[in-house]
Every structure is written in structure tokens, then in C-alpha cells.
Simulated scan of single mutants.
Amino acid sequence: MSRGHAVRAGDGAISRDRHGPASDTLQKYLRAVRGFFIKRVQASEVDDMVQTVALRIQSRGEASSAIENPERYIFQVARSVMIDQHRKNVSRQAARHETLEEWHHPVDEMSPDRIVESADALQHVMNALHCLPTRTRQAFVLHRFEHLSYGDIAAEMGISISAVEKHIMRAIRKLSVALDDE
């Protein structure tokens, strides 16, 4: 016996045979299960849940070779799948999820005008960077482009951390002024 259902060999039984009367019976009931789910769950979950019902029935093996009341059994499996899905949605807080739409990821058009403007802006920044004193430029590049800490920069340049801070602050001020003049 399985889940309180009497199991017997008989004509109305569900079997693992994928082709034949039992398979037709399963398909008939799965269409009804689809209708059952459509009334109770989100449309996006229906196909997966019907497939899960079919998979659970098929995976029962020899135990599902003969079920006295296939309709009741299939709908009991469907209710079980629905409850499992609800528990999964609650534990994953599915109601709080947002779907990603196209407008969440705006496409940044790379028009020829924009490419030219960006290249000009980059050239302006590079010119401003080359106008900095050598030690100031070196400290700034090591920090902003090489991502070194002030301590590492100080060790590499042979100066104090305080001197590194002053070089970087000087670079930021001069670059800000140069870029504002643009």
C-alpha cells in the first residue's frame, strides 16, 4: 500500500509503459492536472509543476505498476507538488523577487559622436596628468591605477606616507582644475 491507496493489478492502473493505454491515461490526467494548477498557481510555474507530477509518478517504478484509483493518486501527487512549491517560494521569499526587464539594463549606445567625445575627454585627462610634477604624477598613478596603498607607495618611492598623501591631494586638485577648464 502507498499513501493510503490500495494497490492492485487491474485495467485502470498506471504503469511505466510510455506507449499504450496506461500512458494515454496518464496524459489524460496530466491535462486535468494542468487545469488544476492553472487555477491555483502562477502561470509561469504550471509547466514545471506538471512535469514534476509526471516525473514523480514515473519514478515510482514497480510501486506504481497498479494503482486502484489513478485519478485520486495523481491529484494527491499534484497537491503535494503544489505544497512543495509553495514552501520553496516562501523559504526563498519569491514574492519579494523582481523580474529583470529590459529597462533594468539600459543599453548605452556607442554612437560615433560619443566615441569621439570620450576619446577627446581621455586625451584631455592624459594631458592634464602629464602636466603634473613627476613625483606627484607617480604617486597618483600608483594609487589610482595600480591600486597600491599609501604605505606601499611610500616604500616604493622612498618617501613618508604623509608625503604620499600630499602628492595625491596635489594631483587631485590640479587635475580637477584642469578638467573644469575644459
Rank of each mutant, 00 (worst) to 15 (best):
I74Y: 03
A121T: 09
N69L: 12
E102Y: 10
V81D: 01
D48H: 01
V90I: 15
T25I: 14
R79G: 00
T99H: 05
I57T: 01
D84M: 06
L100P: 00
P70N: 00
D24M: 10
D120S: 07
E62C: 03
V90K: 10
V50L: 04
I57Q: 00
A32N: 12
L26V: 09
W103R: 03
D120A: 09
M49G: 02
D84V: 05
K28S: 11
A43C: 13
V53G: 00
R96N: 08
E62I: 08
P70W: 02
Y73C: 01
G35Y: 13
E71W: 10
E102D: 12
D47G: 05
V116Y: 05
R79Y: 06
H97I: 10
A43T: 14
I83R: 12
Y73N: 00
I67F: 05
A94V: 14
I74C: 02
R60D: 13
Y73E: 04
P112Y: 05
S91M: 12
R79V: 03
H86Q: 15
E71N: 09
E98Y: 11
V46Q: 02
H86L: 15
H104K: 05
E68R: 11
A54W: 05
E71D: 10
Q27R: 14
Q85R: 12
S111P: 02
A43V: 15
V116F: 08
H86D: 14
K39A: 10
L100R: 02
Q58S: 03
G35F: 13
Q51R: 09
K39E: 11
F36V: 04
A94F: 11
S111R: 05
T99P: 02
S118L: 10
E101L: 15
E68S: 13
M82L: 09
A78R: 03
T25H: 12
Q51I: 06
V107H: 10
A32R: 15
D24C: 09
S65Y: 14
L30G: 01
S111D: 05
S64K: 06
A121H: 11
Y73L: 04
Y29F: 15
F75Q: 01
V90M: 13
S59P: 04
V90E: 14
Q85E: 15
E71A: 13
V41K: 15
E109F: 09
G35Q: 15
E45W: 07
S59N: 12
V116N: 06
T25D: 11
L30Q: 02
Y29W: 13
I74L: 10
